[in-house]
Design a binder for these strands. Structure first.
Length: 435
RNA sequence: GCGACCGUAGCUCAAUUGGUUAGAGCGCCGGUUUGUGGUACCGGAGGUUGCGGGUUCGAGACCCGUCGGUCGCCCCA
């Protein structure tokens, strides 16, 4: 009778495991991000995955979907309401306030990691997803916005992401936004009869979001809706002008998107999205903007700030296949008694910077097969001859123009090692080949 | 929260469209052959067809329910 197997565990809905190419792509996106960030002078920052619920509830806007129905919120054992972060900005601003980071302002920061939203999963959208994030805290100048846009643009180029366009807009300052908002409310209120149910609700809670509506009926109304430009104060207009000029000077292509708004309430002035047509329903790859008032509303000093976040899973789908450095040498002991010297060699070559795979499972044939599959350029066949000599056989298994320098390195490392060895046994080495 | 489609070996898929013992490739294990040691062949293990009901002489195929997945709506990176 067969033993009953426990039922197969499944991952939590909307959360995924990465292996192989997927994991390599993830690593690649983060790696390029870090590298480009350095070149722009951004420093790493780490903030907790969990915050007090109020950190997000207040800042994102009580009426936004994320806060009202998508947060992973739970009481901890002490009864405090905690929330798994649904985005980065609020947490970073909280840290800025609680840790007194204003002493370091202006701060150019990058971070990355998991975020959580209780949404229905689909292509490019998961309940645990990952973002790269860049923020400039304490800089009121439009140059900060420009630098952030140039950063994102260069990153996308280096990742080989094609078919992405930058959509740029301004949401103006508080005065602008108020005037525009009133005009929008007036416009949409006059056409209540044709507005979709969803948009009617938003008319009360968040009228800017009606501009995002995809309802065919709303689209026509949205097309006629007043554009923000007419309401821009002189200051807000000049700021946006400076951003556009700077972006152009930086060689970043963009489109003016007068109806682009942002999901969270804290945004002011610059708002932007890098949009792809290759992701199905999830078009935005990187999105962000300026949020000058946020830190103040959290009880901090008035601090102008800008930032963006990019979806790692989405970037993974768009970027070219990453190059993975192959194993340079596979060491294959022929018998159990050869494993000692094989391990010694492996330790040595690895310490010398070589990428080494040690094959010690399965039959001799299997070991060689695995060595080949690892992509090894060379194969060391380790074994003892009857005479007590240790026999090493260097073989070139893969045609590769880099093979010769690698062989030289291997031989150099081996020589050095055995020169320093006190064990006379291990000095008795014959190196065969290659070729 | 709503909608559409889909669930068959570890993975990717078949099964003449309701008919007998559910097949193949890859992967895994073993063997034979091969030796500039990425070859070829042979064999083996592995499935309560997501789960539960129903229709039928007969269900992997049809119906209902349920769970899961995918994609879309909503929203967002």
């Amino acid at each position: 009778m067969k033993a009953q197997r426990a039922p197969k565990p499944a991952p939590v809905r909307g959360m995924q495991d990465f292996l192989g190419e997927q994991a390599e792509r993830f690593d690649h996106v983060v790696g390029r991000f870090r590298d480009v960030a350095r070149r722009f002078g951004f420093k790493p920052v780490m903030v907790p995955v969990v915050e007090a619920t109020s950190v997000f509830a207040r800042t994102l806007g009580e009426t936004t979907d994320v806060v009202s129905k998508e947060m992973y919120t739970f009481p901890d054992r002490g009864g405090d309401s905690l929330t798994l972060r649904p985005e980065f900005t609020a947490g970073i601003c909280r840290a800025y306030v609680s840790e007194g980071w204003q002493q370091f302002a202006p701060l150019k920061l990058v971070t990355h990691g998991p975020l959580f939203r209780y949404e229905r999963p689909q292509k490019g959208r998961y309940r645990q997803f990952h973002q790269i994030d860049a923020e400039v805290l304490g800089a009121a100048e439009p140059q900060a916005d420009v630098e952030l846009l140039a950063f994102a643009d260069l990153l996308l180029k280096e990742l080989g992401v094609a078919g992405v366009t930058l959509q740029l807009n301004t949401l103006g300052d508080a005065e602008t936004r108020e005037a525009w908002r009133a005009a929008l409310v007036a416009h949409f209120s006059a056409h209540r009869d044709v507005l979709s149910e969803e948009s009617l609700r938003r008319l009360e809670t968040n009228p800017l979001r009606i501009l995002d509506s995809k309802e065919p009926g709303d689209r026509a109304l949205v097309a006629d809706a007043p554009v923000i430009d007419a309401f821009l104060t002189a200051e807000a207009g000049a700021f946006f002008e400076a951003v556009q000029k700077g972006v152009q000077a930086s060689g970043v292509a963009f489109e003016r998107a007068p109806r682009l708004v942002r999901g969270f309430d804290y945004y002011r002035h610059t708002a932007f999205e890098f949009v792809s047509d290759a992701l199905g329903a999830q078009a935005t790859v990187i999105g962000g903007g300026r949020y000058d008032g946020l830190i103040e509303t959290m009880g901090g000093p008035h601090t102008p700030a800008v930032g963006w976040a990019g979806g790692i899973e989405r970037l993974m789908m768009l970027c070219g296949e990453p190059e993975v450095a192959p194993i340079e040498i596979a060491i294959v002991p022929l018998t159990v008694s050869d494993e000692g010297i094989a391990m010694e060699l492996a330790a040595l070559l690895r310490a010398d910077g070589l990428r080494v795979e040690l094959g010690f499972s399965g039959s001799e044939k299997k070991r060689f097969e695995k060595a080949k599959k690892a992509g090894a350029w060379r194969l060391l066949n380790v074994g003892n001859t009857g005479s007590g000599w240790t026999e090493l056989r260097l073989r070139n298994l893969v045609a590769n123009e880099d093979a010769e320098p690698v062989r030289a390195r291997i031989l150099r490392s081996i020589k050095r090692a055995f020169h320093h060895s006190d064990d006379p046994e291990t000095r008795m080495i014959k190196i065969f080949g290659p070729l």
